[in-house]
Amino acid sequence: MVMKWLKRIYAGLIFIFLYAPIAVLVVFSFNDAKSTAKWEGFTFKWYRTLLENDYIMKSLYYTILIAVIASLLATVIGTFAAFGIHYAKQWRQKLMMNINSIPILNPDIVTGISLMTLFLWMGLERGFITMLLAHMTFCIPYVILSVLPKMKQMPADVLEAAMDLGATPWMAFKKVILPEISPGIISGALIAFTLSIDDFVISFFTAGNGVTNLSIAIYSMARRGIKPEINALSTLMFLTILILLLAINKRSSNIEEL
């Protein structure tokens, strides 16, 4: 009995540790004072200044635009790559998988500066395109890693069977392979999207020329100290995440009930 309560208290303390900072941000986003020292009344003014802040709004736009384009392109390239890798000779498979794991294992900062060096060497000015290329580079490996297991689960000779029955390779890919691996493709795309939306380090080194994402905007504001607008932004982001996760949870439990 004592043990049971100890466990509950322990778990409770961990959750308090995880949520207290977020709760502080949420509460102080409604505080009518610039500092977090004192509560001086309820206000929505930080939400208004947030929405009027061009810098943040522009970086929000770039964050979503890059995440959508990068995850879509990464999913297409990654899916075809996984398909090719699955049917490739053993040594090629091994080599590809090793190269593929470099962006996953390497610290973000090394990936960031090496891409920055590449863009400089190629004479590409840092901006939207370089950031997009960088995001695709770190997204594709995760797409491959989530598609490849689905390829392995397929019976080995479905492709041959389909082509024996008269399908062209493209038809066989579309009608036989694609439906089988689609759960892997979808989860790969989702991973790519969240990675891209959340990335800071690699974007920090590869963006430029007025193009920033939300993480870079938060960083440059936070470096200059406490900003109530960031509290308001945190609250909105936290709400979005909560609603999204609850929706996903609800949907999956509905599917289970069916």
């Binding site: 900072p21 977020i22 502080v24 941000l25 102080f28 977090t36 969240t194 959340d198 800071f200 939300l214 993480s215 938060i218 960083y219 936070a222 100290g225 406490i226 960031i230 509290n231 932004l233 945190s234 982001m237 936290f238 995440i241 996760l245």
Partner: peptide, 13 residues
């Protein structure tokens, strides 16, 4: 799922 920078910023406050 919260942005990593916001989580760090929270501790600043």
């Amino acid at each position: 799922w919260m942005n990593f920078l916001l989580r760090t910023y929270a501790w600043m406050t």
